[in-house]
Deep mutational scan, measured.
Amino acid sequence: SAVVMEEGSPGEVPVLVEPPGLEDVEAALGMDRRTDAYSRSSSVSSQEEKSLHAEELVGRGIPIERVVSSEGGRPSVDLSFQPSQPLSKSSSSPELQTLQDILGDPGDKADVGRLSPEVKARSQSGTLDGESAAWSASGEDSRGQPEGPLPSSSPRSPSGLRPRGYTISDSAPSRRGKRVERDALKSRATASNAEKVPGINPSFVFLQLYHSPFFGDESNKPILLPNESQSFERSVQLLDQIPSYDTHKIAVLYVGEGQSNSELAILSNEHGSYRYTEFLTGLGRLIELKDCQPDKVYLGGLDVCGEDGQFTYCWHDDIMQAVFHIATLMPTKDVDKHRCDKKRHLGNDFVSIVYNDSGEDFKLGTIKGQFNFVHVIVTPLDYECNLVSLQCRKDMEGLVDTSVAKIVSDRNLPFVARQMALHANMASQVHHSRSNPTDIYPSKWIARLRHIKRLRQRICEEAAYSNPSLPLVHPPSHSKAPAQTPAEPTPGYEVGQRKRLISSVEDFTEFV
């Protein structure tokens, strides 16, 4: 048969007729292969192709491409040299491709048809291009793949890379869960390890502090508590009631339409708007009261037996805890006409967050109470924005700035309102402590230090009264110190430094 060459192609190359033996071998191979691939376009007849790359030819070592076609129900084999250009295909004639002069020997084609199974398996396991790669995943090629499931790999992101949580363990979102698992493993320790309690022994800490320079003076030496005195035992138990972190309780009120001037209507609300609910979820963490331990979680007086509701929101960081007394989460009882059960919590909070959804101005004093010092007013606006402002009593104007209003988005509203309420509550605590000038409020841990110092002074006084020969370590507060001759004046800087060093040991009130 003659071949018409394309323009620009090399000279004529004689194409030899395939021997009958080659056709029989390739026909047997075509019957084993699956003929249901995917359909081509209507211009080209339905056909199945599979590209198999052999590394070497037997005796020649030339890479070839073998295409199996099922045109007219008769499979045909096409061998081509890759750099050459194939002729145009037609549905009426068999596929013809040019070969190099080196394939002119018909014996070479017979060798190609009689490829060993080793070469076929190696060509099938190679990388296939384009559409033949999808075909190689079918059941027909499963014989050339190794048996057994593939090893499982770690989760992959859409980009093909490992997620960040699997790369950096410290930033993994499941870090707290692993800590819980470690605690569970520790709890399952053997009885021999049960006595080993991690941490620092208080006796060891005391020993280090006792021999430090801070205890060089007799006034700073630790003293032993009497065991037989019940009054001192009660004082030590009272110390446990003062937490070592700051605590805040903040009221949250929802004002519906037409309720801006009605205290009873505001306290009777059992739910609010959708934006109000989203605002609550951002204030803190939802907790169930019956599962809380009052000595570990500050509840601000809420009952854990269901008297004040089942849930509330709280927030904490390293040095403070805040609980929100939310009116809509507290039960509304029919027998309580004046809502006294709610007001006994909300009316005693220094700061209230008022979500004013009424469309009218909310005035300070609508919720009557002796300790309502500051109101954080949240007014929802259009386009997911809110107006946040402050209202306070006249005696609080020096501590709280009420002249600045803020426009905040719904997303950042819980954070801004919480921070403003916490700052206002700190100012309210300082303002409330002014009624007792001898006990200015600095912080909870300073209050613990003052309680310890008062307890020490009482013990020293009782020891001096029981044994008059012992001198008083600290003179009583009601006694007057003996007159001392004025010492020589020293520079102001040295006096300030000495006073600062003494105050650092005794108390921190002056620095606050």
Rank of each mutant, 00 (worst) to 15 (best):
G309R: 15
L413V: 13
C305K: 11
L238D: 15
L413H: 00
G258F: 15
T379L: 03
W445A: 13
I326A: 04
G492C: 13
I377Q: 06
N227K: 08
V495E: 15
S389R: 11
G365H: 09
P243M: 04
S260E: 08
R418L: 04
H338W: 08
L264P: 12
P468K: 11
D439G: 06
Q419M: 15
V388L: 07
T332Y: 08
K394H: 12
R393M: 13
F350R: 03
K221E: 15
L329S: 06
V351D: 00
Y245F: 10
S469C: 08
D439V: 07
L238G: 08
H474Q: 14
N386H: 11
A427T: 05
P471F: 07
F362G: 01
D317C: 02
C385K: 03
R456N: 14
D295R: 07
K406Y: 06
K343V: 10
G492V: 08
A421E: 00
L381Y: 05
L283H: 00
N220K: 09
P491C: 11
L470R: 14
T490E: 13
E278Y: 04
G284I: 06
D336W: 10
I502H: 09
K290C: 08
R285Y: 15
H271M: 12
L472C: 15
E461M: 12
E494Y: 08
Y276K: 00
H478E: 15
G301T: 06
A424K: 01
E270F: 04
E288I: 06
Y441G: 14
E494F: 07
D439E: 10
V400C: 11
P486F: 09
E218H: 09
E233K: 14
I446S: 10
A327G: 06
L390N: 03
I440Q: 08
C392P: 03
A483R: 08
S358R: 01
R448V: 06
K406R: 14
R285I: 07
A481D: 12
D357C: 01
F350P: 03
A417P: 01
G369I: 04
D246G: 06
G300C: 12
A427G: 03
Y313K: 05
V297F: 15
S504G: 13
S389H: 12
C392H: 04
H431P: 01
R275G: 01
K249W: 05
F350V: 02
P414V: 01
V351C: 05
G309K: 15
S273V: 00
P486I: 11
L253S: 01
E510M: 09
W445R: 07
I440R: 07
T328L: 00
A427D: 00
G369P: 03
T332N: 15
N372E: 05
E494G: 15
S435F: 09
M420A: 07
S358Y: 00
P482V: 12
V323M: 06
G258L: 03
N372K: 03
I446Y: 05
A265H: 04
V404I: 09
N356C: 01
I353E: 00
S469F: 08
Q237P: 06
V297R: 15
G347P: 04
T402P: 06
I319P: 06
A424H: 03
D361V: 07
L264A: 13
E288Q: 13
R418S: 11
E257S: 06
D439Y: 12
R339E: 11
F324Y: 05
E360K: 07
A327P: 06
V376G: 00
L387V: 13
R234L: 11
Q237M: 12
A427C: 06
S273A: 02
P476T: 15
I407N: 04
G359W: 02
T402G: 06
P243S: 06
N227L: 11
Q310I: 11
F508V: 14
L346F: 07
T490I: 12
G284C: 06
K480S: 15
E278F: 03
N436M: 07
N412L: 01
I367P: 03
E257A: 07
S260T: 12
S403V: 04
S260H: 11
P294S: 10
C292A: 12
H325S: 04
V416K: 00
D295F: 05
M396E: 02
R448A: 09
D357R: 00
S231H: 11
Q259W: 01
G284Q: 06
R498C: 11
H316D: 15
D318A: 09
S433Y: 12
S352G: 03
V297K: 14
P437R: 05
F279P: 00
P226D: 15
I446F: 07
R458L: 15
H375T: 12
A427V: 07
E462G: 15
S235A: 15
I319L: 15
Q321I: 09
D303Y: 03
L470H: 15
L280N: 00
K342G: 05
D341N: 15
M396N: 01
C460D: 14
L289V: 10
Y276I: 00
S262N: 14
Q484Y: 10
L224P: 15
F362R: 01
S443P: 08
L280S: 02
A405C: 14
F373N: 10
M420H: 04
N412I: 02
C305R: 06
T277A: 07
N220F: 13
T281G: 13
K249S: 14
M330F: 04
L455D: 13
Y313P: 04
I377W: 01
H271K: 05
V505L: 14
H478L: 10
G359D: 03
A265M: 05
